[in-house]
Design a protein around this nucleic acid. Structure first.
Lengths: 120, 120
DNA sequence: CTGAATCCCCCAGGATACTG
DNA sequence: CAGTATCCTGGGGGATTCAG
């Protein structure tokens, strides 16, 4: 789709739009827990309790709140199953999954930056 | 340098190291003002007062604090000139400039995500 | 199991005034 | 010009308890 690339080029020319778009991405991953949660879900769908176990030291309150945020942002899909007791599955949306490109870029920068600041 | 690529591949395999490296990048750009500041400096060196003018609503206190943070992180270089009154120039280091790749990735994600969530 | 409700603390960041 | 020094507030996030 050439239309998307046109838009991306346009945003690059306007510092205001550029910062706004970057901020959208930043909001999607900033805060203490969003990154660990997304990291977990990149491995596949998981239930509430699984996430709670897999993420070190997170409380149900925080997990619940962050998952709700991520759902609002269209990053996570929530599915309820009518079992007894109920079970709930969380998984990344397409947008959520596509964050991997961003996270990879950040990771590569992080690795390189460590080498340059701390020697080796 | 194949060594760096090896390290990057290794980090990809370890979720803990991965999240840590991503966090390094996150710390370098999170907070209310780091992004606008880096955005400004991507256009070239600038003095304190120029930054204050170019960044909407920032106070000297915040600008000073954030610049100091960015300097500690090895993102920004500070140069003092013994004029009267003194002038100080800020510019991005190599690490700081290389953030552009990350920001571009975030921006592209932001633009695409808007399309997918808000219709169009 | 999957959360919601309450209470509480800390600190990022704003407003304002001052200095070398 | 290039910052510091104080004071103050909101809300992010912890601990604990309760509910469907």
């Amino acid at each position: 789709m050439a239309v998307l690339e046109k838009e991306i080029e346009a945003v690059k020319q306007c510092s205001t739009h550029y910062v706004l778009a970057v901020n959208d991405a930043l909001n999607a991953i900033s805060g203490k827990w969003k990154l660990p949660i997304i990291g977990c879900l990149l491995f596949g769908k998981q239930r509430f309790k699984e996430l709670e176990r897999n993420i070190d030291k997170i409380t149900p309150r925080m997990l619940s709140k962050e998952l709700k945020d991520l759902e609002m942002l269209g990053m996570v899909k929530r599915t309820v199953f009518d079992t007894i007791p109920v079970t709930v599955e969380y998984e990344l949306t397409r947008s959520g999954k596509s964050l991997r490109k961003v996270l990879d870029a950040m990771m590569e920068w992080g690795v390189q930056h460590r080498r340059e600041t701390m020697g080796r």
